[in-house]
Design a protein around this nucleic acid. Structure first.
Length: 518
RNA sequence: GGCCCGUUCGUCUAAGGGCUAGGACACCACCCUUUCACGGUGGUGAUACGGGUUCGAAUCCCGUACGGGCUACCA
């Protein structure tokens, strides 16, 4: 049935074209990346085109660097657009601010058709109207059919007066004239039939006083011009769908409207997940670190927190979608293979950071050492003078990766391979310390100062024999040795550690620890 | 307030009329391991409520409750 749906689109000969349309005003949110992912998966699955269009029609919200940052995030995720400001394409410009003149003509067309009108009300007048009309039972009055005739617009004013105001250069906006009573509906790819009654809707601004379109006009015009076939957007857009339906009807024909899919929201502990939630509960919300150029404040990203992009995409995909099986770990290719819109859940999903870390942990465990090597070298960049060979680094990675949920855990899990432990948990050793044990370890130092075999198994054998000679159980010596070498109760097998460290370092660390013990 | 969307373990979810309601994260216990982690076994834990429809409802319909979103010359 699913396949049949796609087959119909294919049969229609319409090449799938989808778009991600962010407004470059700051960090790229988790939910934003998921929207990108679903766009991308759908496009790739259908051999379609994935477009990124910059929705920068609000000049007051322009944030320097936000656009470049956005593309950096996509690059890190491995979700490269086919067409965009950075990737080119024949449907540009891909920045709405550069398409300004295009929108104007459609706004004019709408006025001619009677679906829109000029409104001269100043922001102050609107403010006044809202406070004046606000009542407990109607806390947010709308600019709608109820009040539009009492405000200053080309509907309430005479044609002459309107002309006069226009010629005088009076600032104005163009608003949609919401029909009196009409039922508007469409079939959402995720939630099915959705209906609205225009009587309850307001006259949204389509063209702002500065000549820029609002989202409503721009999205319709651009989706048409860029021949978008399927539009994925957050559920928060559902209430404005009727505005867009009206514009499609009037401008380009409802039959040409893209198929819409309103994605469920990603929720934090208190509603729609926000940057604040991240700060409050200690998890990242943005894909990559974002520094607000105005305040200088940096918000941590998943990348810097230590997430593998593969894991990031994987966990995002499984937030509101699954393939129907119990499979949870997916590569991008596998996601493309098994993705389908109808398996997207319609309910909002709470983001669970614990599960997010589990995904990352799984990916780290499954990643071959050479995949992890660059991150490893990054973590230990300042300690590179230790001069380990790549082979040895690979060995270390294999020893510690299952202990790392985040890439940043590498530092504490493997740090002791590079530098002597800063502190040693001598208390844990001292509890069961004895002069016999001291003698044993003195002997062990001598062993490591001599001709030590490189094999872990041989070292362990020697260790046990020596313990027997001292009439000590290997068990009660192993933990102290570990602590002497790494500082605490953690890390890979003891003799895996000694073989990586080498006899000299091993002997030195034991000797140093002995100076701290009675 | 109005409009729209939603509601299965704490969280992500499976089960699209017939079940002991399955899995994963987290949590707990045990095993493995003389560290930590990995791994293994088991456990606690859910169909919001009320009506229908039906031989039979988590599944279909209605209502209620609850949650979320929107209600800007922001997207």
């Amino acid at each position: 049935m699913v396949a049949a749906g796609w087959f119909i689109f294919a049969a229609m000969g319409k090449k799938v074209r989808v778009r991600f349309a962010p407004s470059p005003t700051g960090g790229l949110h988790l939910g934003g990346v998921r929207t990108v992912l679903f766009n991308y998966l759908f496009a790739k699955k259908n051999k379609g085109t994935f477009i990124v269009r910059i929705e920068d029609t609000d000049q007051r919200r322009f944030v320097p660097g936000a656009e470049a940052y956005l593309f950096d995030c996509l690059r890190w995720c491995g979700l490269e657009p086919d067409e965009s400001v950075q990737h080119g394409g024949s449907f540009g410009p891909y920045r709405q601010s550069e398409r300004k003149t295009l929108y104007r003509q459609y706004a004019d067309q709408l006025i001619e058709k009677g679906l829109a009108y000029y409104a001269f009300d100043t922001p102050e007048e609107l403010e006044k109207m809202r406070t004046l009309l606000a009542t407990p039972s109607n806390p947010s009055p709308q600019y709608d059919r109820q009040v539009r005739m009492q405000l200053r617009n080309s509907l309430s004013l005479s044609a002459d007066e309107t002309d006069r105001l226009l010629k005088a250069g009076t600032p104005y906006v163009i608003r949609i004239k919401m029909p009196e009573q009409e039922t508007l509906g469409f079939t959402d790819l995720i939630r099915g039939e959705v209906r609205f009654d225009t009587a309850t809707l307001d006259d949204k601004v389509l063209l702002k006083a500065d000549g820029m379109p609002t989202y409503h006009l721009a999205v319709v015009v651009d989706d048409h011009h860029m021949q978008i076939t399927h539009a994925f957007r957050g559920e928060e857009w559902l209430p404005s769908a009727p505005v867009h339906i009206l514009l499609w009807q009037s401008l380009f024909g409802i039959e040409n409207m893209p198929r819409w899919a309103h994605l469920p929201l990603i929720l934090g502990p208190e509603g729609k997940l926000s940057k604040r939630d991240g700060a409050k509960y200690g998890f990242p919300v943005f894909a990559m670190n974002w520094t607000d150029p105005a305040s200088g404040e940096t918000t941590e990203g998943f990348k810097e927190k230590g997430f593998l992009p593969e894991a990031f995409l994987n966990l995002l995909a499984l937030l509101g979608w699954n393939d129907g099986s119990e499979k949870e770990i997916f590569t991008l290719t596998e996601l493309i293979d098994s993705f389908s819109i109808e398996r997207i859940h319609s309910a909002g999903a709470h983001f669970d950071y614990e599960k997010a870390k589990w995904f990352n942990h799984e990916w780290i465990k499954r990643s071959p050492a050479n995949r992890l090597l660059p991150y490893f070298q990054e973590q230990f960049a300042t300690l590179s003078d230790v001069g380990y060979s790549e082979e040895k680094l690979t060995r270390i990675i294999e020893l510690v990766k299952e202990r790392c949920q985040l890439l940043t855990d590498l530092k504490e899990q493997a740090g002791f391979f590079f530098v002597d432990p800063l502190s040693i948990d001598t208390a844990a050793i001292a509890a069961k310390w004895s002069t016999e044990k001291r003698s044993f370890f003195e002997g062990l130092i001598a062993y490591y100062q001599g001709e030590t075999p490189e094999e872990a198994a041989q070292q362990e054998q020697a260790f046990k024999e020596k313990a027997a000679a001292f009439q000590l159980k290997p068990g009660e010596l192993l933990l102290p040795l570990r602590i002497m070498l790494v500082g605490g109760k953690f890390g890979p097998g003891v003799f895996d550690i000694t073989t990586v460290l080498g006899p000299a370092t091993t002997a030195r660390r034991i000797a140093h620890a002995l100076t701290l013990l009675p």
